[in-house]
Design a protein around this nucleic acid. Sequence first.
DNA 1: AATTATACATTACTTTTTCTAATCTTAATA
DNA 2: TATTAAGATTAGAAAAAGTAATGTATAATT
Lengths: 301, 301
Amino acid sequence: MPRQLPSLNALRAFEAAARRLSFTRAADELFVTQAAVSHQIKHLEEQLGMQLFRRMNRQLQLTDAGQILMPFMSDALDMMASGIERLNHEQREGRLTVSTLESIAASWLVPRLRNFRAQHPEIELSLEIADHPVDFDRDKADMAIRYGPGGWPGVSATKIADEEIFPVLSPSLLEKGPPLKHPRDLLKFPLIHEDMVDRWEDWFEAVGETAIEVPRGSSFPHSNLVMQAVMAGEGVALGRSFLIGPEIASGRLVRPFAASVTAAFSFYVVAPSWAQETPKVQAFTNWIVEETRVAARTGDS
Amino acid sequence: MPRQLPSLNALRAFEAAARRLSFTRAADELFVTQAAVSHQIKHLEEQLGMQLFRRMNRQLQLTDAGQILMPFMSDALDMMASGIERLNHEQREGRLTVSTLESIAASWLVPRLRNFRAQHPEIELSLEIADHPVDFDRDKADMAIRYGPGGWPGVSATKIADEEIFPVLSPSLLEKGPPLKHPRDLLKFPLIHEDMVDRWEDWFEAVGETAIEVPRGSSFPHSNLVMQAVMAGEGVALGRSFLIGPEIASGRLVRPFAASVTAAFSFYVVAPSWAQETPKVQAFTNWIVEETRVAARTGDS
DNA sequence: AATTATACATTACTTTTTCTAATCTTAATA
DNA sequence: TATTAAGATTAGAAAAAGTAATGTATAATT
């Protein structure tokens, strides 16, 4: 039952001509010349083996066959148009799935979402928490927030923040612990580490302490767990500027030294490059860029 | 509100691929290569600015967008297919309008129609009586029976009968009139003429009577009126073989001499050449050809 | 009655789209 | 590890669609 259809372009030309009862006006509508419509319809009539129009000199009439065909074609084209219309609508409204790392979601994104929803009530944002980079060809995510070196192929990435790394501890620990005058004093505190990532040497190097043996202490798999531990007063850890803005601002975390190391990786909003121009994707990208800019200015990043 | 649609061919490729969930199988269905489908869909996705399929290596899935689009396209293409289907049906069944001269309709065609209806109950034959040759570009007639020299441009014509012309009179006139031994004896009868056409000289010439002054008598505009007059015993006229078969066969008209003149014109079934192959037209053409052949054999032409 | 204007048809190309063959890529399967 | 089964890619060929210019027929106008 594979459908047997004549040239679809010819059918479209027929429909326009039948609707306007004029090849010339149909041509205008289709942005082609009258000759093009004339050709298409002649071709179609040949393929079908029947006349669709009666050409009287000033007037065009549908033959019986044309009258039969016309409503089918109009309805079919209308239906196609509404399908396309629905898709366009879909690019504008409805669900937008953003894939992020858990740490970003928890500490940065989720608290700000109410804001996004207020600005874009037509977009129903849903988060997908994934440990590892999205593959837009596979996953159903429309966009992602990624932490990495940038320059990924096939995606358009907008940097939202560089990441600064510096020691943080809880105010209570700072108070009851040994005095913290000099970076070396940090070694008197328990140092908490993040699995797989360790930048303590880099940070000490940045403050001129090159020959330090950094003791291992407890460690956690994700930076937000590390921060939980720090806020519980369990020790000192390296905090990532992008993720702990609110904790610093509220005083739940204290930054004893201004010195920081800029991480090689940054945070990016990414979307498949073919989707970069679509309204929903642009809305989210613009929102997040603006949001980080405001956050940076108010020291709340 | 002129509809804004992407390439219809690409939409068709999409629909097939979405239905079979395979570019390869869609390609088979559309009688093209897999590469063609791949191109079309890539192109379509670019135009729409969204992915329609998720390509996993062995498996193809519709994205949300694809799922939205799919039923619209399926329904639209189905609708187009049913329009075309209806047209094909129309070429096979339903009304067939045949244009003829009144004389042919009355004396030849109408009496045989019951026969055609029996053979082709699916065709609803309707006659259109027209004095002058049909123009298929104008009139709604699908076919015609024409009397003429043949070789018309743009139409396919099948000769159904040559026309023989010979004198006829009513049996009662033959009986009560002067004896008819020799062609010249005809001059003792009133000769009835047909307006515009006069072949008496030709006929006399055919029987070797070259130097005859043919007297004018009464005349009528159409040959069937002439024949009415002859059957009413009003005189002798030249009868046309094609039209008076039944009258001769039943004895209502008598043919006193075997000699006849073959007319320059013949009878043809004609149809616009683009329609010549269609089932209804072929059915009528075949029927009429067969019918005249039978009539010629049984002497009933 | 002649002239003008309108609308589709035709012709000879040109341009665009579509398709193909060959080859590549990726990952599931043997 | 090799094989196989999709789809993707590339470069070029083929087919379809479109154009400009002109032709034709005839209704409308002058």
